[in-house]
């Protein structure tokens, strides 16, 4: 075994050397950098440039603008990766609905102590509100669909830990099918939002603001007092629902007791 360790050590060390030498020799730019790359400068200059709206994304947050406008299709497929991972997980753990009442009445003591339970009860709506605040300001401040969605998942995760997975199904009346539906609705909203410019007569998928070379109806920058940064606000909202529901779905699935599975798979 020792020789194999040595061989692996040497090969990985060679990788280290190659990359390190490449960086030190300036493969990725001079050291230390005092300027950013020109492409990045373009994004920074134009993402919320009120004086030259040809290239703008109407969002003062450059990262959100890049995620959902400049490089929007990346994010669309990234959402698809997450979606497909969830579907793979669901396919792997496919299971008929667990009889809720039977199991939860069988086990007397579910969850953690009353202190954690009460704190969770207080924290649950507060966390959802804070995460919604992050999602709704995703185009103005850091954060966005994924970040706020995962913050929303915190609420459900604490609920699973502090009470039990049956709490979500019994008290909140949300089964995994509901989450799947919520998730699908969110995803379909994203897809329709991306397809909307085409339906409106443009030829560009995921177009946010109309460009001079592609003058079609663009998403309104604002709904009355509500600055929506074109479509970015809606994307963030849909992604928020999607990611929150997706995480909760996965954790609901993974927290099904092992006995259930062994019974179903006949192991």
């Amino acid at each position: 075994m020792k020789t194999k360790d040595v061989v692996i050590g040497i090969t990985t060390a060679i990788l280290l050397l190659v990359i390190a030498i490449a960086i030190i020799l300036g493969g990725t730019g001079w050291t230390p950098l005092t300027e950013i790359r020109l492409l990045a400068k373009f994004y920074l200059e134009n993402c919320f440039n009120l004086f030259d709206k040809n290239y703008w994304a109407a969002s003062p947050e450059a990262v959100s603008a890049m995620l959902w406008d400049y490089r929007g299709i990346d994010t669309y497929y990234e959402t698809a990766v997450f979606f497909l991972a969830v579907i793979s997980g669901v396919a792997l753990f496919r299971i008929a609905e667990v009889k809720v009442g039977a199991i939860s009445s069988m086990r007397r003591e579910l969850g953690l102590s009353i202190i954690v339970k009460t704190v969770t009860r207080i924290a649950f709506p507060l966390i959802i509100t804070v995460s919604a605040s992050v999602a709704l300001h995703g185009h103005l401040t850091p954060g966005g669909g994924f970040q706020s969605g995962s913050m929303m998942a915190v609420a459900f995760l604490t609920a699973i830990a502090a009470f039990s997975r049956y709490f979500i199904e019994e008290n909140l009346k949300l089964t995994k099918d509901n989450f799947l539906t919520l998730r699908s609705v969110g995803l379909i909203t994203i897809a329709i939002l991306a397809l909307a410019p085409i339906l409106a007569g443009s030829i560009a998928l995921m177009q946010n603001q109309a460009k001079p070379w592609s003058s079609t109806p663009s998403f309104p920058e604002a709904l009355g007092i509500l600055w929506t940064a074109g479509s970015i606000f809606y994307y963030n909202l849909a992604e928020f629902l999607t990611v929150g529901a997706g995480f909760t779905l996965l954790f609901l699935l993974i927290s099904i007791p092992e006995e259930e599975f062994r019974r179903i798979l006949r192991l």
Partner: peptide
């Protein structure tokens, strides 16, 4: 020509769109 290229770009998009919709349909 852009429309033709658009048709190519529509294929993966449409497939993913259908994948998004299929769980809902199955429910």
């Amino acid at each position: 020509t852009n429309y033709i290229a658009g048709l190519a770009a529509l294929q993966p998009f449409l497939a993913i769109f259908a994948a998004f919709a299929l769980p809902l349909i199955s429910l």
